[in-house]
């Protein structure tokens, strides 16, 4: 029985905060849950917070990249926030640069990035 990661809705944005070391099935479940919630809520942005993750291996890295691609097709932008420096160093050496994934250093900056992209929140001038 794999653990389900909560997907929170804040306005037009879905927030996922990964708090524990995930087994592979939970990672796949999260991807499906997110895609369903995007369509269900019409969310325009997704923020995935990985502050608590001590490692991102190729499986999780691939999931993050495909989730961003799936969200884009479903008309939502994804921002990955909170990656630890050691995780970034390791990911690049592993051979994964997450080229198609937007990143921000903190949750606050990630939300601001989605706001600037337009269409998300009421802050559009």
């Amino acid at each position: 029985m794999s653990e389900r990661i909560p997907v929170l809705r804040i306005g037009d944005v879905l927030l996922v905060s990964i708090q524990t070391d995930l087994e592979d099935q939970s990672v796949l479940d999260l991807q499906e849950d997110l895609a369903e919630r995007i369509v269900e809520t019409g969310a325009q942005g997704v923020v995935i917070d990985i502050t608590a993750l001590e490692i991102v291996d190729s499986f999780v890295g691939r999931m993050l990249a495909t989730t961003a691609a799936i969200s884009r097709i479903l008309d939502a932008e994804t921002v990955l926030v909170g990656m630890r420096p050691a995780v970034a160093i390791t990911l690049v050496e592993l051979g994964l640069s997450l080229g198609g994934v937007r990143t921000a250093l903190s949750l606050e900056r990630g939300l601001a990035m989605l706001g600037r992209a337009g269409g998300v929140g009421a802050g559009r001038a």
Partner: peptide, 17 residues
């Protein structure tokens, strides 16, 4: 070091999978 720990744990994750 923290970076080396992260690298080793990541490698172990790949190999265990």
């Amino acid at each position: 070091s923290l970076v080396d720990q992260t690298k080793l744990v990541t490698a172990a994750s790949e190999l265990a999978r």
